[in-house]
């Protein structure tokens, strides 16, 4: 009796200890995985804040001579990344205009016809599309648009490559969101004699809008930082370019150009910082929308 009590006491102590170790282990690993973001932000702010001023947002990238003179005089490099900011807005905007309607309609089809054989095939292809390496999409953009359509590097080619890239996240988030909407809402609308397309466009999709927009925002933030496909399609430009059939710059392309020019190295940090802030804002915006526009049913 006594012996068995002693053994079970020891066992319990050991078990409790294991529990404790496991709990603290979890906490420390959770902490570890949140460290990289803060290290990146710290590094970028430390090295990039000097370059950021009003000119940085409104002037185009400096040429290498001006930069060299400024660096040798220990001044900040003149100029900014306005050509990249405008280019990113145009390329990402155009990609969104292409991908958002397509993705939402496709996702709606998948959620409405979940058991359909064709829907199964489409779903599989969209999932595969998610895994296509971005550089391959660049090659596709080059072959499809750059050579036959615009006859040279262009923002349009970049937008199409990026729209393919953001499509899967919009399709899947739309599908998952709409699947959660109770069928009773659809029945309510149909019982009022509302035609099917209006039921979907005016009742079902608006009810799921927060989930759909979250997917859209995450899709945008994913493509906003893409570099590889743009190297083969939009190429880059030293001036602000608003003609979508011409080579156009983008913030990530500028980071790559700065990296290749020893005189412009200190611009890398500022451009990266701006890009990171932009993408963080998109992510925070997605979270805010998901919370604020959530519809209770």
């Amino acid at each position: 009796m006594n012996i068995s009590t002693e053994i079970s006491d020891r066992n319990i102590k050991r078990r409790l200890l294991k529990d404790k170790i496991f709990t603290y282990g979890m906490i420390s690993f959770a902490f570890l995985s949140s460290i990289p973001l803060f290290l990146i932000l710290y590094e970028l702010i430390l090295k990039g804040y000097k370059q950021i001023n009003i000119n940085f947002l409104f002037e185009v990238a400096p040429d290498t001579m001006d930069a060299m003179i400024a660096v040798s005089n220990h001044e900040i490099i003149p100029g900014g990344i306005a050509n990249g900011i405008v280019g990113t807005l145009i390329i990402v905007g155009l990609a969104s205009i292409i991908a958002i309607p397509l993705g939402i309609i496709c996702g709606t089809y998948l959620s409405e016809n979940a058991e359909d054989r064709f829907a199964g095939i489409v779903r599989f292809i969209v999932d595969m599309l998610q895994g296509v390496p971005s550089i391959v999409l660049g090659v596709i953009g080059y072959i499809w648009i750059v050579k036959p359509v615009t006859g040279g590097f262009s923002a349009l080619a970049g937008s199409i490559a990026l729209s393919i890239m953001m499509l899967p996240s919009i399709v899947r988030s739309t599908e998952e969101t709409l699947k959660m909407i109770p069928i009773s809402l659809k029945e309510a609308a149909l019982s009022l004699g509302v035609p099917y397309h209006r039921v979907m466009l005016k009742v079902v999709i608006p009810t799921g809008i927060s989930g759909i927009l979250t997917g859209v925002m995450l899709g945008i933030s994913r493509i906003a930082g893409e570099t590889a496909p743009l190297m083969l399609t939009a190429l880059g430009s030293t001036a602000i370019q608003t003609n979508i059939t011409q080579p156009t710059s983008a913030i990530p392309l500028l980071v790559w150009e700065f990296y290749n020019d020893p005189n412009l190295v200190s611009m890398i940090w500022s451009a990266s910082l701006l890009l990171l802030i932009l993408i963080l804002c998109l992510n925070l915006g997605a979270k805010a929308i998901a919370k604020k526009w959530k519809v209770q049913y």
Binding site: P182, S184, L185, E187, A188, A189, S191, L192, G193, V194, P195, R198, V199, K202, V203, P206, T207, I209, V295, Q296, Y297
Partner: peptide, 26 residues
């Protein structure tokens, strides 16, 4: 017209728009 087992007002709409939904949605 039809009324269902669980109340199912349109969650994106106001009370007013729910009543008039048959007209608006059509």
């Amino acid at each position: 017209g039809m009324v269902f087992q669980r109340p199912n007002p349109f969650p994106t709409m106001s009370i007013y728009d729910n009543v008039i939904a048959g007209f608006n949605l059509n």
